[in-house]
Amino acid sequence: MEKFKKEIPFLAIALIPFVYLIYIWNRLPEKVPMHWNGAGEIDRYGDKKELVAVLLMLVGINYFVFLLIPYVDPKQKLQNMGNKLNIMRMILTLFMSALALFILYSVEQKNSNPGFVFVIIGLLFAFLGNYFKTIKPNYFIGIKTPWTLENEEVWKKTHELGGKLWFVGGLLMALTFVLPNNIQFYTFMGITAVITIIPIVYSYRIFNKIKNQ
C-alpha cells in the first residue's frame, strides 16, 4: 500500500495528457495533423486514434520503464541513488507530459511552433546533464558504451564530461527558439550530434589510456 501511495504523483502526472485527449476527442476531426517539418508546416495527416499511440510512447513507456528498472537492474546500482532517482523520474515524467500536452494542443489548433519543442527537449538535456555525475554504472540510464560499462572509472569520467556537455548543449538547444524556423532544426541536430559523439569517443580513449597503464 505504501508503494502505491508513492506512485500516485507519478501516475497522476502521466495521466494528464490522456485526460486532455479525452476532453478534446469529440472536437477533433477523424484526420488530424501527425507530423510537422522543421519550418512548422504540416506534412502528414493521420487517424486521430494514432494520438493514443503517441501518448503511450511518450508518457506510458517513460512511466513503466522507470517503474520497472530498479527491479531488473542486475547490479542494483540504481537503488543506491536513493531519492535522486525519484527526483529524476519526476522531472522526466513532467517533461514528457508537457511535451505530450503541447503535441495534443498543436494537433487541436493545427499549428505548431517547433521552437517550443526544442525548448522542452533542450531543458530536458540540461537537466539530465546536471544529474549525470550522480548516476551509478547501470544498463538503463546514462552514456552506455562498451567501455563505460566495462570500467567504473571510465563511466565516472565520461559522465563528468558528458554531464557538462549535455548541460551546456541543452541550454543552447533551448535558445534555438530565437532562430528562424528554417535553421532551428539543423542547429538542434548539430548540437545533438556534438554532445552525443564526443562522450562516446572520449569513453573509448579514456578506456584505452587506463588499460595501457
Rank of each mutant, 00 (worst) to 15 (best):
L28E: 10
L28V: 05
F116D: 13
L165C: 00
Y71V: 09
I210A: 07
N130K: 12
M81D: 03
K31S: 15
L94F: 14
V119I: 10
L68W: 11
P70H: 01
T158I: 03
R205Y: 15
G162K: 00
L28I: 10
I197C: 08
A14R: 09
M189N: 03
V65K: 06
I103F: 08
Q109S: 11
T145S: 02
I16R: 03
F4S: 14
F116P: 13
G115M: 01
K6V: 09
E153S: 02
L68M: 05
N138D: 03
K164I: 14
I121E: 12
L172W: 08
M34R: 12
I16P: 06
L172H: 10
L56E: 08
M88D: 07
L51E: 05
G169F: 02
Y131S: 01
V117L: 11
K164S: 11
V52H: 10
E108K: 14
L128E: 02
F102K: 15
E7I: 10
L67F: 15
N208C: 03
L15S: 14
I198S: 06
L104Y: 07
V54T: 13
V59D: 00
R44I: 14
K49I: 14
I91G: 03
G142F: 01
G40T: 12
K49A: 12
F140R: 03
W166R: 01
S203A: 00
Y139D: 06
K48T: 01
T148Y: 03
I141H: 06
H159P: 02
R27I: 10
L92A: 09
P74T: 02
L94M: 14
Q184M: 03
V54F: 13
